[in-house]
């Protein structure tokens, strides 16, 4: 009886240990992959049109969902924020509440989550499909490294697109907040913008938001290209890799957001 329990415990511990070492090994693999991407970056940048093309697919095609979501999130923030602020007769602070939460958190985070599900999954599916149909092998046999030709442009396109998308999300969110707060509820427009300007600093509030979005863009793109590159070359393999991209990169965004927030905002008052 007790030996059975010990056996179970050993099994649980072994599984836990396996998960931990597996995770660490995965991180190491990702770092190595990132190293390979960076190594081939000069080669990829020499053909800028490849990266521009990928910016079109991951950036331009994500615009509609980002702008729409930003607008709605801003409008909801404005309504909810007004509800709370009214209790303290601080309605004119609405501008700060909307702008700070968008610029520091919601723009990068929700923008990143949308980017992961719109562009990240598409990148994984595309690379996975190229692998399944031996296009990557074909490239290798033509003495062209797929990391330079296929992976690096997609990675950099994500790193470039994400901060622009996050800024657009925040800007449209603030516009949405303005529509509800000023046009519908009737807060004074001067107070709305004035309080916002007094309360939001370019450095560090906005710059930290931009840094966050660049980090998220790099994380999502890296996860997306790795999942695609490592996908099993079958239909099920590609579809499960696509799912994994969305799940893993969403978790990565939220975890990184916590870490970055701890580092960035704690020391501001010093």
């Amino acid at each position: 009886m007790s030996s059975e329990a010990t056996g179970d415990l050993v099994l649980v511990l072994r599984r836990l240990g396996g998960t931990v070492t597996g995770g660490v090994a995965r991180l190491g693999y990702m770092a190595r992959f990132l190293g390979a991407i960076l190594w081939y970056t000069p080669m990829a940048l020499r053909r800028l049109h490849l990266t521009v093309r990928e910016i079109y697919f991951s950036g331009v095609l994500s615009l509609v969902i980002i702008l729409m979501s930003g607008l709605f999130v801003g409008m909801v923030l404005s309504l909810q924020g007004y509800e709370v602020l009214r209790r303290y007769s601080a309605q004119e602070q609405l501008g700060i509440v909307v702008a700070l939460s968008l610029v520091k958190e919601l723009g990068p985070v929700i923008g990143g989550l949308l980017f992961a599900s719109r562009a990240g999954s598409a990148i994984t599916a595309e690379i996975g499909l190229m692998k399944a149909t031996e296009q990557l092998s074909a490239m290798e046999m033509m003495a062209v490294d797929p990391i330079a030709r296929v992976v690096a442009p997609r990675f950099w396109a994500g790193v470039i697109s994400m901060p622009l998308l996050a800024a657009l999300f925040s800007a449209f969110g603030i516009f949405g907040g303005y529509l509800i707060g000023v046009r519908v509820i009737g807060i004074d427009a001067g107070a709305f913008w004035g309080q916002m300007q007094a309360g939001v600093n370019f450095w560090p509030d906005i710059t930290n938001g931009i840094i966050k979005s660049i980090v998220f863009g790099a994380a999502v793109s890296l996860i997306a290209v790795i999942e695609g590159y490592d996908a099993k070359p079958t239909a099920e393999g590609v579809s499960s890799a696509t799912t994994r991209t969305v799940v893993v990169s969403s978790l990565a965004i939220l975890a990184l957001d916590f870490v970055l927030t701890v580092f960035m905002f704690r020391g501001v008052g010093l």
């Binding site: 149909t133 296009q135 092998s137 074909a138 046999m141 033509m142 003495a143």
Partner: peptide, 15 residues
């Protein structure tokens, strides 16, 4: 490899 050509099973054309 530049001196090699390879025809893959289903062509592997870049889609």
């Amino acid at each position: 490899r530049r001196k090699f050509g390879m025809l893959f099973q289903f062509g592997a054309l870049f889609t």
